Amino acid sequence: MTALLVFLGAMVGAPLRYLTDRFVQSRHESLFPWGTLSVNVLGCLILGGLAGAGTALPGHVLALAGTGFCGALTTYSTFSYETMRLVERKAYLSAMMNAVVSIAAGLGAVLLACAGIAAIVN
């Protein structure tokens, strides 16, 4: 049953990642991967909130929303690939900023959501 919930969450997360990435990236003419940054930070925010809820969430919700949805929404491989492509194009500042901002914003989103939801639930 858990594998099915993960699968169902991923069925929503993966297309949403693609559509969000295309939507965000189409509004920027720069090489910077704004779409990937957006979905990764959003996924961190959601997963942080789920973690902050702790045991108030049933395990099946975490499998569906955390592992399935967030796992398919976020993408470390695309982040890494796009950073490498920026380096190949000699856009060194953009590559460095992508790495630094992605990690800092992702961690910040997790911490913010986790602490915020934990304060509400507990």
Rank of each mutant, 00 (worst) to 15 (best):
residue 26 S to D: 14
residue 83 T to S: 14
residue 85 R to Y: 00
residue 92 Y to L: 14
residue 121 V to D: 02
residue 21 D to L: 11
residue 24 V to H: 07
residue 54 G to Q: 08
residue 73 L to Q: 09
residue 6 V to D: 00
residue 84 M to L: 15
residue 62 L to Y: 14
residue 73 L to S: 07
residue 57 L to G: 04
residue 56 A to K: 10
residue 22 R to G: 04
residue 39 V to S: 01
residue 87 V to P: 01
residue 13 G to V: 02
residue 65 A to N: 01
residue 81 Y to D: 10
residue 100 V to W: 12
residue 54 G to L: 03
residue 59 G to T: 04
residue 63 A to P: 03
residue 38 S to A: 15
residue 3 A to T: 14
residue 66 G to S: 06
residue 63 A to E: 12
residue 94 S to P: 06
residue 55 T to L: 11
residue 41 V to W: 03
residue 89 R to C: 03
residue 17 R to A: 10
residue 48 G to A: 03
residue 82 E to A: 11
residue 11 M to Y: 00
residue 88 E to L: 12
residue 85 R to P: 08
residue 106 G to M: 13
residue 115 A to S: 14
residue 4 L to M: 13
residue 112 L to Q: 09
residue 22 R to M: 14
residue 60 H to I: 12
residue 19 L to T: 03
residue 2 T to I: 07
residue 55 T to P: 04
residue 58 P to T: 15
residue 6 V to S: 09
residue 108 G to R: 05
residue 94 S to C: 10
residue 93 L to W: 11
residue 27 R to N: 10
residue 31 L to C: 10
residue 54 G to Y: 10
residue 47 L to D: 08
residue 97 M to S: 11
residue 98 N to A: 06
residue 34 W to R: 13
residue 100 V to Y: 05
residue 116 G to I: 10
residue 84 M to F: 13
residue 72 A to R: 06
residue 116 G to E: 00
residue 35 G to P: 02
residue 84 M to R: 12
residue 34 W to E: 09
residue 24 V to E: 08
residue 69 F to V: 05
residue 6 V to W: 01
residue 4 L to A: 14
residue 107 L to S: 02
residue 2 T to V: 13
